[in-house]
Amino acid sequence: MPGSPWCEEIAVQLTVNGESLEVDADLAMPLLWVLRDELGLTGTKFGCGIAQCGACTVHVDGRPVRSCVTPVGTVSGEVMTIEGIGSAEALHAVQEAWIEQQVAQCGYCQSGQIMTAVSLLGDNPQPSDDDIDRAMSGNLCRCGTYPRIRAAVKAAAVRLSEV
């Protein structure tokens, strides 16, 4: 309803997974819902909507952000989602490690876990257990896959160091 005091839908320019896009959205709309409902990129998940669970984690210019609380109007950098990290044909080393360790149970949190881990290993290729704790503790997993996440982060660090 253009013109309504509650919303100003305007054309927003975004770069998502390397592609430049234009999408009509209220500038206040969280990036999460632009990705999921406007662009159909459903790999990024809705868990809490208040930056408590990490299910919605994406990268903006390589930094992990909680897309559920990031108004699309504030996004100026390049957005990367789980779909952009790797695919079945070309897996990212972190995804390979996740598969090797058979991490996922329900899998709902895992896009966010992987995005956080990719960012951690980008900054810190040889993280200690404390580093891993600090990076990963914002991502909840109700299925309790934490021990395998830790193993997969370590396995991914090894894979990346061998590339």
Partner: peptide, 23 residues
């Protein structure tokens, strides 16, 4: 035997279809 889970790859690439992902 420990088999690779058939849903592991889609769950690690964001392509698994949960009901919230129905389009």
């Amino acid at each position: 035997k420990s088999l690779p889970r058939e849903d592991m790859l889609p769950k690690c690439t964001g392509t698994a279809q949960f009901s919230i992902d129905v389009q």
